[in-house]
Amino acid sequence: MTPPRRRLAITAATLTLAALGVTSCGAVGQAVDCNTAASEASKIATEWSNAITSNPTDQNAFGEASKTAADQTKELAGKYDGEVAAALNDLADGFQTMEGGDLTSATEFTGKLNGFTSKITAACS
């Protein structure tokens, strides 16, 4: 696995772990909402990761996959309010920073990913 692919796989795995980690939400209704939000965010990140790892040197494909992920995450955030929506919008902004196709921004995004997932988890606490 090439280094960019390894970083992208770690990104997808981190989001998946975040989806599993939010099951500790307090109220049952909130737990379901948090699980749904985290699961959908994980699905978006996995689709993004798959899209960019299929051709890791194609800047246009990278930018388009990032734009699609940002749009989908913003749409998901629109279904929620409060801190969950804010956390999802922050994740969307992270995807949006990569829309230009700059492959080095994936490294920065991966470094910030724990912060995004922590916000989603904290919103569910």
Rank of each mutant, 00 (worst) to 15 (best):
Ala65Met: 03
Ala31Ile: 00
Ile52Glu: 02
Gly82Asn: 08
Lys67Ala: 12
Ala13Val: 11
Ala86Phe: 04
Ala61Ile: 08
Pro4Phe: 07
Ala45Phe: 00
Leu15Cys: 07
Ala41Arg: 00
Ala19Glu: 04
Ala37Asn: 07
Asp102His: 11
Thr53Asn: 12
Asp81Cys: 01
Leu20Val: 10
Thr57Ala: 08
Asn114Thr: 10
Leu88Pro: 09
Thr57Ser: 12
Ile44Trp: 02
Asp81Val: 01
Asp81Gln: 12
Leu15Phe: 15
Ile44Gln: 10
Lys112Asp: 14
Ser125Asn: 13
Gly21Thr: 10
Thr16Ser: 14
Ser125Trp: 04
Ile120Val: 14
Glu40Gly: 00
Lys112Tyr: 09
Leu15Thr: 02
Leu91Gln: 10
Leu88Gly: 09
Thr11Phe: 08
Ala37Ser: 12
Leu20Thr: 06
Ala65Pro: 11
Gln30Leu: 12
Ser125Gly: 13
Lys43Pro: 00
Gly78Gln: 04
Arg6Tyr: 06
Ser105Ile: 05
Ser49Phe: 01
Ala92Tyr: 03
Ile44Pro: 05
Gly63Lys: 05
Gln72Ser: 13
Cys34Ala: 06
Lys119His: 08
Leu20Gln: 07
Thr117Asp: 09
Leu91Asp: 03
Ala18Tyr: 06
Ala19Thr: 00
Ala12Pro: 07
Ala13Pro: 03
Asp102Trp: 05
Asp33His: 01
Ala86Lys: 14
Ala12Glu: 11
Pro56Met: 06
Leu20Trp: 02
Lys67Cys: 03
Ile120Lys: 03
Ala86Cys: 03
Ala122Asp: 15
Tyr80His: 15
Gly94Leu: 06
Asp71Tyr: 06
Thr73Leu: 06
Lys112Trp: 08
Lys119Thr: 01
Phe109Glu: 09
Asn55His: 05
Thr107Arg: 09
Gln59Gly: 04
Gly78Arg: 00
Arg5Thr: 14
Tyr80Asn: 08
Lys119Arg: 13
Cys25Tyr: 05
Asn60Trp: 07
Ala18Asn: 08
Ile52Tyr: 02
Ala69Ile: 11
Asp93Cys: 03
Gln59Glu: 15
Glu108Cys: 05
Ala86Met: 04
Ser42Gly: 13
Thr104Gly: 11
Arg7Thr: 13
Asn89Ser: 07
Asp58Arg: 02
Lys74Phe: 13
Ala106Leu: 15
Trp48Thr: 02
Asp102Arg: 13
Ala13Phe: 06
Asp81Leu: 00
Glu75Cys: 03
Asn114Lys: 13
